[in-house]
Design a protein around this nucleic acid. Structure first.
Lengths: 171, 171
DNA sequence: GGCCACATGTAAACTGTTACATGATTGT
DNA sequence: ACAATCATGTAACAGTTTACATGTGGCC
């Protein structure tokens, strides 16, 4: 496919857990072509090229996939804020939790749609099971986030003693 | 605290979801001092400085914490590999899942220890509830990973038709 | 004719890690 | 004396995003 089509394909499949920007894609396509891992064929349009994987490119892909996944760099901006929750106050923290819950709900819905679509679709026979695996990971993660947010929303105001102690300050 | 102590403190508290390297810490401490957000006091040792937050630094911290969390850059090396699972084969994918499950199990244990320790510990009175929140996030996420891995490990060999079709190849 | 989607590419800016270099202090 | 830990800092590198610049082709 073309670089442009590749970017689209990524965002429509693995986009939930991996993304690349144009600034990465085009230089990389050229580099891989220079290394003989991709080959370029002219497309209909004069200014566009369609790339395909060469046998040695496929070999290289499989070899890279076999490398152990490097330890994830975990950086969670939401948890960072909640860790300093004392400086934000319970109300703000509850808003953050609610936001996280809403987003997880939207994601869950989207994953379930994708999962249903994947089951129906003809083709992708060999990939389907694996793609389903990644969708299930998203579904489990989203459900966990929702459960955590609900539990936390329930706990947060009571333990802070904010529910009954400040019954609206006078104007 | 000193830059060194800060690094240690980070890895022992928020280390599970946020980290900074020395290459960030020291230049940043100096920058914040120049901006009047931190002040430096000489420590016992001649070559070390103890930093503390100034009032304007605290104000700035709170203002930064109030900024909405930027959308996470999601990049999951494990799911990327599983997405291309067809090129790896079921056996390798099962190994990846088992590895993820093991790691999540270790993390879960560590979170539960920390959570128990936090409940006992005197002090941290105002922070405890919020720190518990972040620990609970880790616990929910780890449990979700374990459940997902178990479910996937159960499904993977059956659907691939590997269980009965290849009854041990001859030597 | 003008808009939109398709398509490519680069430069600058920004972010972050790692390796290296250096030295002080403490305990054995 | 020596090792371990405490402590600071920088330079090189690696990775990544964003904004900009440019142009094609189809369709209404």
């Amino acid at each position: 496919m073309t670089g442009y089509a590749l970017k689209l394909a990524i965002s429509q499949t693995i986009g939930h857990f991996w993304n690349e920007s144009v600034g990465q894609i085009y230089p990389t396509l050229r580099r891989l072509e220079d290394q003989g891992l991709l080959e370029r064929t002219r497309a209909m349009r004069r200014d566009s090229s369609v790339f395909s994987v060469t046998p040695s490119g496929l070999k290289q892909l499989r070899s890279l996939l076999r490398e152990p996944p490097p330890p994830q760099t975990r950086r969670n901006a939401l948890l960072l804020r909640l860790f300093f929750g004392r400086h934000l106050g319970p109300a703000h923290c509850r808003a953050l939790l609610q936001g996280a819950r809403d987003q997880a709900t939207r994601e869950l819905e989207s994953y379930e749609h994708l999962s249903a679509a994947l089951a129906d679709e003809a083709g992708y026979a060999h990939d389907r099971e694996y793609w389903l695996l990644t969708l299930m990971a998203g579904i489990h993660a989203a459900r966990a986030t929702i459960a955590w947010a609900d539990e936390s929303l329930q706990r947060l105001p009571d333990t802070m003693g904010q529910t009954s102690k400040r019954p609206g300050r006078p104007r």
